[in-house]
Design a protein around this nucleic acid. Structure first.
Length: 429
RNA sequence: UCCUCGAUAGCUCAACGGUAGAGCAACCGGCUGUUAACCGGUAGGUUGUAGGUUCGAAUCCUACUCGGGGAGCCA
């Protein structure tokens, strides 16, 4: 007998199959018992009628929620089922009866669910989000491989801050100070000079005491860097990537989006090219919207939401004032007060999902910018070497995975977009 | 770091200065199509911690602990 995943049951109508999983819930009416099983790919209802199989009916009444079991049965078409099929069981083997399960099908609070994250992820909603995250991560890799980018991982333990100002997690590296990486970008620039087009994909760490629905202490970032890409090439690459992610999730995770009650029309409305607004135009837009904002300041979350609300697709804000952005960003030759960089804001108030720029390729200018930002020159010797040995124009960006997944799923908080979130005041479990 | 809200049964909440209660979960019973099933019953409490006010505190005050939302900063 074939072991079949629940998501594939509809291809086995009329056949006897084996399902391995856990009891999600059961309901009984005296002479009919409904066992709802889950196996990680979905849930299916198994219907036991007392008069048809009395022994099995009597032996399944005390199976508790989340008990593990192997069930065999016949797949039957059933229009009343959301899945389209139901199972008429032939046998049930209980592997382990679960103790009373803390997470019931009723409502729970955030604190309780977070404390039980290891069990919370078993619920259909959380499983759907994690499946979509998996699709997003795979689609990122597929996208870059189809465009001749090489995966080149950046280190997680680093000797100094990449960008200077952020608060980093400090670790003891054999009695030497070291830090958890807050960005793989500088290393990406090195591998891009070796391999041409590269990306890295891993966790990054920020020790800032941020406590909002958009922040995690540990989050995953996809960072790409390409030699000979200018600022425009860079934005085109970014919008095609994000468009590809939305399309892929729409085609591969329809059921999950439905389970999450995501308004898929909003994702279907995402189209190329994405709108582009200069920082100066964005400032004007905010003021026109009755949202006073002074040129030279950085946008806060409410500002970003006000801007992104005007568009159906993610929107680029480019040419920010140089002094509110990182030291390595290339000044605009037409106006050195602004840089050739852009942030991408997701629709519906999900905020910044990408930050990118063309990088300074001139060694003298880079040295000057490092000094202006009061960064220790000695830490950047290897980085300056990249400009000494055959420097070329190059550009890159970083995409925050949890914010992207949150947007695609339409969920409230990034903590649900990663299996085990690390938030300001919680790292258990 | 700052602002703000919260902590009562395993869970979600009520009681707002006068005998701590409900729904769900657990346990017992009933019900032939349930979708967080439903109906009846049983059991379940040092009201986050410490102190104070009061004849009397879950309730008012102070401090602390833990957590939620947000700002700043960022992805």
């Amino acid at each position: 007998m074939d072991w079949v995943l629940i998501k594939n049951l509809k291809h086995h109508v009329g056949k006897e199959v084996e399902i391995r999983g856990w009891l999600y819930n059961q309901r009984a009416t005296g002479k009919i018992r409904f066992l709802i099983l889950r196996d990680g790919t979905g849930t299916v209802q198994c219907v036991l009628v007392k008069d048809e199989n009395t022994d099995l009916f009597n032996n399944t009444g005390d199976i508790t929620q989340e008990s593990s079991l192997i069930l065999t049965g016949t797949v039957r078409e059933e229009p009343r089922s959301p899945l389209g099929v139901e199972i008429t069981p032939l046998s049930v083997k209980i592997l382990a009866k679960a103790e009373p399960y803390p997470i019931t099908l009723k409502e729970h609070g955030v604190d309780f669910l977070s404390e039980n994250r290891h069990l919370w992820i078993r619920t259909p909603r959380q499983s759907a989000i994690l499946r979509i995250r998996s699709t997003v991560q795979r689609a990122c890799r597929d996208f870059f491989h189809s465009r001749d980018f090489v995966l080149a991982d950046s280190p997680i333990i680093t000797p100094a801050a990449c960008e200077g100002t952020s608060t980093l997690f400090e670790i003891n590296y054999h009695d030497e100070k070291a830090f958890l990486s807050q960005s793989g970008q500088l290393y990406n620039e090195a591998t891009a000079m070796a391999l041409g087009r590269v990306y890295c994909f891993g966790p990054t760490f920020r020790a800032e005491k941020s406590k909002t629905r958009r922040h995690l202490m540990e989050f995953w970032m996809l960072e790409a860097e390409a030699a000979f890409f200018d600022f425009e090439d860079n934005m085109k690459l970014q919008e095609e990537l994000v468009h590809h992610l939305a399309r892929t999730v729409l085609s591969e995770n329809r059921d999950d989006l439905k389970l999450l009650k995501r308004d898929v029309e909003k994702l279907e409305a995402v189209s190329l090219p994405f709108p582009r607004l200069s920082y100066t135009e964005a400032v004007k837009l905010l003021n026109d919207l009755g949202h006073p904002f002074e040129w030279g300041n950085d946008f806060g979350a409410p500002d970003e939401t006000a801007i992104s609300d005007k568009f159906q697709s993610p929107v680029f804000i480019h040419r920010y004032p140089a002094r509110i952005k990182a030291f390595y960003m290339e000044p605009d030759p037409e106006n050195p007060d602004v840089i050739l960089g852009a942030d991408m804001l997701a629709p519906e108030g999900y905020g910044e999902i990408i930050g990118g720029s063309q990088r300074i390729s001139d060694p003298t200018l880079l040295r000057q910018k490092i000094a202006e930002h009061h960064l220790p020159l000695e830490s950047f010797q290897w980085y300056l070497d990249l400009r000494r040995f055959g420097t070329v124009p190059h550009s890159g960006f970083g995409l925050g995975i949890e914010r992207t997944v949150s947007w695609l799923c339409g969920i409230e908080h990034v903590r649900e977009a990663i299996p085990f979130p690390r938030t300001l005041y919680r790292m258990y479990p």
